[in-house]
Design a protein around this nucleic acid. Structure first.
Lengths: 222, 222
DNA sequence: GTCTATAAATGGATAGAC
DNA sequence: GTCTATCCATTTATAGAC
């Protein structure tokens, strides 16, 4: 990327403005790993620094303290949901297929981003106080509920979906099936010896999630 | 309860053997609260002591260190699942009703024990390393899967349930719907302004969970 | 903006009296 | 078994040079 900004730049090129972003990005990546593994209080800034090419004071220079670094990691991780939103731009000619693909996309997104899932779990442990009142977080998930409402509408009109289903509750149902298996993988491994991330198990649960949702919405039923 | 043990007992009665158990129980209760609220690393032993009538050295006297106290809390909390197991001793004449009641019992148990749910989340954050390899934990949940298998069998024979459903995966599905809404209550409140613990919302999700499971098992379907 | 070195504070753990 | 007082390892955070 060329120098498209007005930021200061030394002649020797060592202090290119993009170095800053690269350093920040590297710290955020390392911090995501450590926070997801140890939690907010369990994470050590030293451990985060050890995963970068830089040192602890640099981390404090770019992020005021450990908690603000955590919030930055959280914002960064939530931003990835846009990938999921983009995956939802399918056509509505076949509502059943649209719903199936939405569930699969959500399932795959959770499975592919265990660090994000763990971060959300950790944030819940802390009462979600770092995202409370911040609309930039709320906005993300809202798009999915809107999409669900659209698909539900499209399926209700031809009578393939039953009426009266709350898209928010449907989102809860789908999220439960996608989130829990990632967030609780460790205790399931310990309690049942079942690795829910194993390809065969994941594939089976993916089919079950889709089937559970479609059967729940099916109109041909009491 | 009378003095039914051979433990030492002073004449003045102040050091009755049961005082020990009472102190331990009080510490465990306080520790459950703090660990569930702050996590393993976030919890402060001082905060735990502040919730008891005793002091920090007493905690270290009864439990060797913070981590062993945490494990004791975990064991204690897992023990409560026996209440759930007991609730599953229903008759099998009506498999659909038995399944409905199992889902409702699991749902209600999770809803009534948010501190336990949070502890399990925390334990997952730490890779379940405190329960790994300890059969006393594994044994608890296993009973529910066994019960599911029995109910599934009872429903398959008369043809009200379809065949080929893995009880372990069914347990996963039910647990997802019961656990996630409690573990992720804070982020849902923050993201959607929806309090999943509110009576009307909880009642709606309880119905949805039952319906989703029964529709998933229904034999009269594609 | 990034480093080395260190300060400041927190919080797990214990000594020793009773 | 429980207390008061305190230790000391760990860890967040910064001072100051480059």
């Amino acid at each position: 990327m060329p120098n498209d900004s007005a930021l200061p730049m030394k002649p020797d090129g060592r202090s290119r403005p993009h170095d800053i972003e690269r350093t920040r990005a590297e710290i955020l990546r390392a911090a995501l790993t450590v926070f997801a593994e140890k939690g907010l209080t369990g994470a050590r800034v030293d451990d985060i620094a050890a995963l970068t090419h830089t040192t602890k004071p640099t981390i404090y220079y770019h992020f005021r303290n450990k908690e603000e670094l955590y919030v930055a990691v959280l914002e960064n991780a939530y931003g990835g949901i846009r990938d999921l939103e983009r995956a939802l731009e399918m056509d509505l000619a076949d509502p059943v297929d649209a719903m199936r693909r939405l569930v699969e996309a959500s399932f795959d997104y959770h499975a592919a981003n265990p660090a994000w899932v763990r971060l959300v779990s950790i944030e819940n442990t802390h009462g979600a106080r770092h995202i409370a009142g911040k609309p930039e977080f709320a906005r993300r998930n809202a798009a999915i509920v809107e999409r669900l409402r659209t698909i539900l509408d499209a399926g209700e009109r031809p009578g393939v979906f039953r009426t009266g289903v709350d898209p928010m509750q449907l989102h809860w149902m789908i999220s439960s099936l996608c989130f829990y298996r990632v967030s609780n993988r460790a205790t399931w491994q310990a309690n049942f010896g079942l690795d829910m991330a194993a390809p065969e198990t994941a594939a089976a649960q993916r089919r079950i999630a889709v089937e559970a949702v479609l059967r729940f919405l099916d109109a041909d039923r009491s």
